[in-house]
Design a binder for these strands. Structure first.
Lengths: 211, 211
DNA sequence: TAAATAAGAGATTAATTCGTCTCTTATGAG
DNA sequence: CTCATAAGAGACGAATTAATCTCTTATTTA
């Protein structure tokens, strides 16, 4: 079938075809999206980067928006974030924030696209877009917290939900503001100065006390 | 002088001039920015909204980017956020976050602009744009923290800087993700579940301990 | 009142870019 | 080997828009 020849772009071939070509196109679109952003990404810039012509793009996707959406999807499916399991909550969080920050520049790309008018027609907010894209995937942090709970490191019943999402909220914030992965020092600050003090303090008050 | 006539756009006048006109132009640009976003804001759409021609815009700002930056600046200066002084840190924070969230949809507009191409033409990141626009203004929270320190409520020397910026980082994050002001419950969560526990815990460890 | 200034209106130019279309030729299927 | 398919390359039209320029006329100032 198709798969017969796609494994290796063996030399001798001058033209890519099928899945191999499509992957190259989506990869090029993704790179453009990350490097120059949705607004300055053009069909031709993608074609040039993929070393082909715009017609090849239009044969697959009817317009720029669909190409970008496909590229985001492609990246999400081919670059899964693996959840660390170091044995301690602190190290798990440091590892997860680091790897997620490095790998998930995708989030910035999505938001860039969203803000630039990609979804002005749908009327979705970035949060809704994020939900849509990450709907199928399980939450990264859920496993880590569950394990920490089982180890007795934390008591999930006593920790307000906002505490658990805070590190990732801050990560997204920083990435949006700087366009870059979070530096290691910042990860340590988030974990050691903000997160751990809030989850470690199990004694005393029983979470959620409002008023 | 100029001010002599600008107070009231008294009827009889058919053409606006000077400060009155400039304010109308910046107001129009701001409205466009908020309603349709940077990408879909055109010089003509601003001119039409201001009931004038594009030449009037170009007489004042050399290009679209400068107009948008001026509009953001204008909004910031004409809609100042007043810093609350309730007598307690907790209530000050709740009040400040509430009023800032309600008033500062501007931030979203800034980021929208930044993501949609403002930064590609200027080469700035959203954080840098934000710095540029808020450079002259003092930090909202500085006064509040200083007063709380003087009252003995907190010890600024023992609190990591990240703790002090965290509530506002989260506010920005939420506004970016939802396009809306932060709901009151979320403000209470940020203050009571995240911020206060971190600043109140003055005893024990002496902040900043890394490693 | 007379002259300088700039508003209002809009035509125009130049550049960008989306999307379509054509043509040649490498490639895979039978 | 032969043929249908689609890659590669690029020309092209249409639409948008930033930015300039022209001209008339209201308004201010001296």
């Amino acid at each position: 079938m198709l798969v017969a020849m796609t494994e290796q772009a063996q030399r001798g071939r001058q033209r890519r075809r099928g899945e191999e070509l499509e992957a190259a196109l989506l990869e090029a679109a993704w790179q453009e999206l990350v490097e120059v952003g949705y607004a300055r990404l053009t069909m031709e810039s993608v074609a040039v980067r993929a070393k082909t012509g715009v017609a090849v793009l239009y044969r697959r996707w009817p317009n720029k928006d669909d190409l970008v959406i496909a590229a985001i999807h492609y990246y999400g499916n081919t670059h899964p974030v693996e959840i660390p399991d170091t044995g301690s909550l602190r190290d798990d969080m440091i590892a997860l924030l680091s790897v997620a920050s490095a790998a998930r520049v995708s989030f910035v790309a999505i938001i860039t696209a969203a803000f630039s008018g990609l979804l002005s027609s749908t009327g979705l907010t970035p949060a809704q877009v994020r939900e849509k894209v990450t709907a199928d995937r399980p939450t990264w942090s859920a496993d880590i917290f569950a394990r920490a709970h089982e180890r007795g490191e934390i008591d999930l019943d006593c920790i307000p939900p906002a505490v658990l999402t805070m590190p990732f909220d801050l990560m997204r914030h920083d990435m949006l503001m700087t366009y870059k992965p979070i530096p290691p020092e910042r990860v340590l600050t988030i974990v050691d100065d903000l997160f751990m003090p809030l989850v470690a303090r199990q004694t005393a008050r029983h979470g959620h006390l409002r008023r």
